Simulated assay, not measured.
Amino acid sequence: MKFQTVLFMLVLVNVSLFSEQDEVFFETQRKRLNSSDIFEIRDAIDRLTFIKSNRGFRDILSALEGTPNFPTSENNAPAVKFYAAKAIAKKGDKIAVPVLIKTFQKESASIVEHNPPKVRKISDGVADRFSNSSPYFYDDGEIPMVLACGEILRTLGSLPFSESSEQTIKQALSHPNFYIRSSAADAMYESNRKEFLPTLSEGLGKEQVPYTKVSILSAIVGLERLPNQNFKVVTEMLSDKDPEVRKKASEALRRLDLRIAAPYLEKAIEVENHPIVLSQMRDDYAYLISFRNP
């Protein structure tokens, strides 16, 4: 009996210690989210993302919203919203939908067709090689709001469906900025809802920008799951004169995950001379031909 009592006390002490450690962890991350250092904020978001507990989820939502009373604060930086949106997509909790919509509507309202703060080339590198390709290539701390809004849309598409999220995504497909339109098409694909097909087809008929056309076409093919004429056009864009479009087409074929796309990528690799695009094509080709459990 004495042994059982001692064992029970030890368990209580350990539970108490773990609880105190949890409190310290979450309080530390909250403080770091209020930092003026974007990289420290990003690390705090990562730490809250890759733990099993969802306890820090509302802290990530707060990071996405920022601090409206201090508009020039680093907490409102586009990079913070970009990484917070990516984290929310990984967590996948539907309580984020209203916050995502509110933030997107607020931040996208002032985005026009062409607004990069400085001229960049694809050779300058991309902010996150695992994110969807973008026509804007920046370092982590220089991510513009248009990238953040695009990431918010894709996250919105990946979360459980709601009428408000559907309306927001549909409206974004008519946005003045071609990257926002591209991201809206990505969001429709992420939703896996065939109800978006008429909207996508209508958007395709109006679209003039090749980069956005790739996104719309690949979304249509992805929802139809048919290697039809739209699929053929995506493969043809692997030879577009713009390296950003070729890279986007390669990523689109990987996302579609149709093995019949592998020969097209293999042929494109033979003639590709841009190092970043070539690296992307090789990664995507390797993914398509790799063995994966169904």
Results as ranks from 00 to 15, higher is better:
E202I: 10
R58Q: 13
L288M: 05
Q171F: 04
A44S: 12
T67L: 09
E190T: 00
I45M: 02
R246F: 00
V233Q: 12
P78R: 06
L217D: 01
S108G: 09
A268T: 04
E65I: 06
Y179W: 11
F130A: 05
I169T: 03
V234N: 00
Y211W: 14
I95P: 00
P144V: 14
S53L: 05
N75Q: 15
V277R: 10
P144D: 12
P117H: 06
A184N: 03
E151N: 07
A89H: 08
S215I: 02
H274V: 04
L217W: 00
F50P: 01
A84L: 07
L100H: 04
E23V: 12
N192I: 08
T235R: 08
I38Q: 10
T155W: 01
R292E: 11
K170H: 01
A148C: 06
F231I: 05
V15W: 11
R58Y: 12
S108P: 02
K81D: 01
I111G: 05
S183Y: 02
S279Y: 11
K106M: 11
R255Y: 02
P68F: 09
V233A: 03
I101W: 04
L7Y: 09
V277H: 07
E207C: 05
I260E: 13
R30D: 09
P198Q: 05
Y83H: 11
D186N: 14
Y287C: 01
S134F: 11
K194Q: 15
L238E: 08
T5A: 12
H175I: 05
L7V: 15
V146T: 11
T155I: 03
S290G: 08
Q21V: 08
K170P: 01
P275W: 08
S158I: 00
L226D: 15
A127V: 15
I101C: 07
S158E: 04
